[in-house]
């Protein structure tokens, strides 16, 4: 950076060049830097500190070492919410990745119809979680809901999706896939446009069929994007919160209570801030590990 700068400025008369250390830049970054330190760095550090404390009856925190983390490890409800979160990630991330790729492949055409369909598939992404859950609660409502009306018209008994411990999480997963499908599709579309056309022409000359072309050219070309999509979706879906908070309140029988809802309830219903902060650190670590594991696995494949 600095090298190219000095080469470029060398030809310019040295009137305006300052040699001394120049602190002017700080005037420009000061407003942002203040916010960054105050709203991200400080709460992050306080959060780490909080996770090692416990509030007493007067709300004064005292240092308790790893007590909160030990308590989390032995808490059957926390174990359950970790499982629920992992289950939800497994339900959503592979589906979102595969559907995103399939849609991108199907809609990567310069026609008006493809553009209209792309708009439709991305439109749900811009809605807020409250609107999405409101819509889907009405879809899943057994009495008077959309699926209920359809099954009644077909002569079936409506299913109470959100009240069934087996079906509630899949229902939330369906809602989430409907909501989030736009992002992986858009990322794959961007990647597909980077694939050199000559590759496809060469494949066609070699007489490769659709599947062969997909397998040998398209998939290897979008491998990096697949990695990005998976990492992003793992990070996003690990943070599941609004959907169960609004659709099921974590029920029935804890079946849909994820880690973030646990943090929210521990922190703002029971006011156990230290315990909630500890759970937040565990989630943060899980997200980091998942993202790094995925990154590691993918970069290893790249070398091979």
């Amino acid at each position: 950076m600095t090298d190219t700068l000095s080469v470029e400025t060398a030809s310019i008369p040295k009137v305006k060049r300052r040699k001394a250390v120049d602190w002017d830049g700080y005037l420009f970054i000061a407003p942002y830097l203040a916010l960054f330190l105050l709203m991200i760095v400080t709460p992050l550090l306080i959060g780490v500190w909080l996770s090692f404390t416990k509030g007493d009856l007067f709300g004064v925190e005292r240092f308790v070492g790893f007590e909160n983390f030990a308590r989390l490890a032995g808490d059957p409800i926390f174990r359950e919410v970790v499982w629920n979160t992992l289950y939800f990630v497994v339900l959503t991330v592979p589906t979102l990745t595969i559907l995103g790729l399939a849609l991108a492949l199907a809609l990567n055409f310069q026609t008006r119809w493809a553009a209209v369909l792309r708009t439709i598939f991305f439109s749900s992404t811009v809605l807020s979680v409250t609107v999405v859950t409101l819509v889907w609660r009405l879809v899943f409502l057994p009495d008077g809901g959309l699926l209920g009306e359809i099954s009644e018209a077909l002569g079936q008994t409506p299913v109470a999706w959100l009240n069934d411990p087996q079906l509630a999480m899949p229902a939330i997963a369906i809602t989430t896939i409907w909501w989030c499908l736009g992002l992986p599709m858009v990322l794959y579309l961007a990647a597909l446009q980077q694939v050199p056309r000559e590759l496809y022409e060469a494949a066609a000359l070699d007489g490769a069929g659709r599947w062969r072309t997909l397998w040998s050219i398209t998939l290897p070309a979008v491998r990096r994007t697949t990695m990005i999509v998976i990492v992003i979706e793992i990070i996003l879906q690990f943070q599941l919160f609004g959907q169960p908070q609004l659709m099921t309140l974590g029920g029935p029988n804890n079946a849909t209570r994820p880690i973030v809802l646990f943090i929210y309830e521990t922190g703002w219903r029971q006011w156990e801030l230290g315990y909630a902060a500890a759970a937040a650190q565990v989630l943060f670590a899980m997200i980091m590990v998942a993202a790094m594991a995925q990154y590691f696995v993918s970069s290893r494949k790249e070398e091979a």
């Binding site: 709460p43 959060g47 943070q239 922190g267 989630l283």
Partner: peptide, 17 residues
């Protein structure tokens, strides 16, 4: 690096502040 910090990691302390 701040991009990698999820909301959960800061929201409790932010609320306290």
């Amino acid at each position: 690096l701040g991009l990698a910090v999820p909301e959960q990691a800061v929201i409790i302390a932010r609320h306290q502040m």
